[in-house]
């Protein structure tokens, strides 16, 4: 198990290197450079070429691309995230401020979609062909096909403005910052963000469960004389769980992408919202760091998924 974990961890390193390189390359290819964003446009036209060149030299922009990448990535590894172009705030401070909110939202959505999706999918599989199954199928299709921001707007209209159950947006009211005070703020964004993933997990859990239930070992389990629910849960669901967890790992980027939009809709003060404004104002150092962090988040999450799969399915423990 430990060797498996270590090996899996080692494969992350080349992936991080390649992806960070691609991110850097992508921004290199965008028009303009740091100087053109640092200096206001009207001042830019006034400055003569020599001073611009000197400014570029002082920022290290004259060095070859690979060298600049190397300086950047070694800096990041040492915790030097650089400064946001807008206001010159250290990016590490922005992360410290905003990351907890995003993690809270994503984690809540992940939890909801995993639990709700697997439970509904299992119910759907066990009542195959019934009215419950069919209506869950319809709900699942709607969940997958309607965009999240639409659900978000409808939820705000219905639950916040009409019914007044939850606040319209935001995360914390000043003076009310315990978890229970924050919870009402979290409910709507987390639910809306989880809808698409819940629907996906549900559909997948259903087919995975049906597959598991058709296997021979289910008949063996029945032949032992155990109650039907135990056959379904202990033997069916447990085996059906592995592919579902793998699917959840694959869908994580969707969740992160979705949180960018949902944070906008609900004015959730997270990294996603920051990311959108950074892209708008061409704040490239910040954009790069957010992109790198999302990649890291997905990679780490997929590592956790792999470990979970190894724990659940003994056949995966190839390292032994």
């Amino acid at each position: 198990m430990l060797t498996y974990f270590a090996r899996r961890l080692l494969t992350l390193i080349p992936m991080v290197i390649v992806i960070s390189f691609l991110i850097y390359l992508g921004l290199e290819l965008t028009p303009g450079d740091a100087v053109s964003h640092m200096v206001p446009p009207d001042a830019l036209s006034m400055m003569d070429e020599e001073r611009l060149q000197a400014l570029r030299e002082s920022l290290g922009l004259g060095k070859p691309f690979i060298v600049r990448y190397w300086i950047w990535i070694t800096g990041v590894m040492q915790g030097e995230f650089g400064y946001s172009l807008a206001g010159g705030v250290p990016i590490s401070k922005i992360f410290l401020d905003r990351l907890p909110a995003t993690l809270e939202l994503s984690f809540a959505a992940l939890l909801i979609s995993t639990v709700l999706g697997s439970i509904l999918g299992t119910i759907s599989a066990l009542t195959r062909g019934s009215l419950t199954d069919q209506s869950l199928t319809v709900v699942g299709m709607l969940g997958v096909s309607i965009p999240e921001f639409f659900f978000g707007l409808v939820a705000i209209l219905v639950f916040a403005l009409n019914l007044n159950w939850f606040p319209v947006g935001g995360r914390i009211l000043p003076g009310y910052d315990s978890f229970w005070d924050r919870l009402p703020h979290l409910v709507m964004p987390a639910m809306v963000l989880s809808i698409m993933m819940t629907a996906g997990v549900m559909r997948y859990a259903r087919s995975s469960m049906l597959d598991a239930l058709s296997r021979d070992f289910i008949r063996t389990a029945r032949s032992k004389g155990m109650p039907e629910w135990r056959v379904n849960i202990l033997h069916g669901f447990r085996v059906a769980l592995t592919p579902v967890i793998v699917l959840i790992g694959f869908r994580l980027p969707v969740l992160i992408g979705g949180s960018v939009i949902i944070e906008q809709v609900f004015q959730w003060p997270g990294i996603g919202k920051e990311f959108v404004s950074a892209v708008r104002s061409q704040d490239y150092p910040l954009v790069m760091m957010v992109a790198l962090f999302s990649v890291l988040a997905v990679l780490i999450a997929s590592l956790i998924v792999d470990l979970l799969t190894a724990i659940i399915d003994p056949r995966v423990r190839l390292g032994e």
Binding site: R215, D216, F217, R219, T220, A221, R222, S223, K224, G225, M226, P227, E228, H235, R238, V239, T242, I312, D313, P314, R315
Partner: peptide, 30 residues
């Protein structure tokens, strides 16, 4: 079929072994 009486017989009084031991055992349990 799934009543307590049938389940008490199934396995204890009448047991069954199956054709393909590769698939008849659950892979995720020892």
């Amino acid at each position: 079929r799934d009543g307590a009486k049938m389940r008490a017989i199934r396995g204890k009084e009448i047991a069954m072994i199956f054709q393909d031991p590769m698939t008849a055992l659950n892979p995720v349990y020892s």
